[in-house]
């Protein structure tokens, strides 16, 4: 927010703010460094998902990367659908008419699946989760959180209590 920063000021700032760059690099590392993950041999999974107003049972599915997943969608009360985020996968089932389709879980992460056929008032919130492999995003987010707390402690290491009226 300072408008005129002299060169010497700039150097000073870099000197004082080196920690900022360290944090930035650490943050980027946390986001982008590939984490080692145990690669289980892909298997075929046959899953049955029951859709009722307004939930999928089971609501959370965990599979490994590369698994071939055959999904049976069973509508329990009214017509429901299942549309999986991130994958081009959609199913619609009437009660009494189970629909089956298969896909290969190539992408890792957590993907929401939603009901794709309006099934009542809470239809927009009918959600399930497919977790492919470990939820690295969550782990990275936790690390970022710890980094953020550390950064907060670090950022105020010098001017404490009474000194910080300076920039007000």
């Amino acid at each position: 927010m300072k408008f005129q920063v002299a060169d010497s000021d700039l150097i000073n700032r870099i000197k004082n703010d080196w920690w900022f760059f360290v944090l930035l690099i650490l943050g980027l590392l946390i986001i982008f460094v590939p984490l080692p993950q145990a690669q289980a041999a892909p298997i075929d999974r046959h899953l049955r998902i029951e859709a009722s107003m307004y939930q999928f049972t089971p609501g959370v599915i965990k599979v490994n990367k590369g698994d071939k997943i055959t999904l049976d969608l069973v509508a329990m009360d009214v017509v429901h659908g299942l549309s999986l985020d991130g994958y081009d996968f959609e199913l619609t089932a009437d009660p009494g008419q189970t629909k089956t389709a298969a896909f290969i879980a190539e992408k890792t992460g957590v993907f929401r699946f939603r009901c794709s056929v309006a099934c009542g008032n809470l239809h927009p919130f009918m959600i399930g989760k497919l977790q492919v492999g470990p939820n690295l995003m969550f782990i990275r987010a936790m690390l970022l959180g710890i980094l953020a707390m550390g950064a907060a402690f670090w950022s105020l290491r010098k001017p404490f209590s009474n000194l910080k009226e300076v920039n007000n």
Partner: peptide, 18 residues
């Protein structure tokens, strides 16, 4: 969402510190 939450945590921690 992660960045927003992490910024929120940093920010509130910083205020706490202050």
């Amino acid at each position: 969402q992660i960045l927003l939450l992490v910024i929120g945590l940093f920010w509130s921690s910083k205020v706490t510190q202050q």
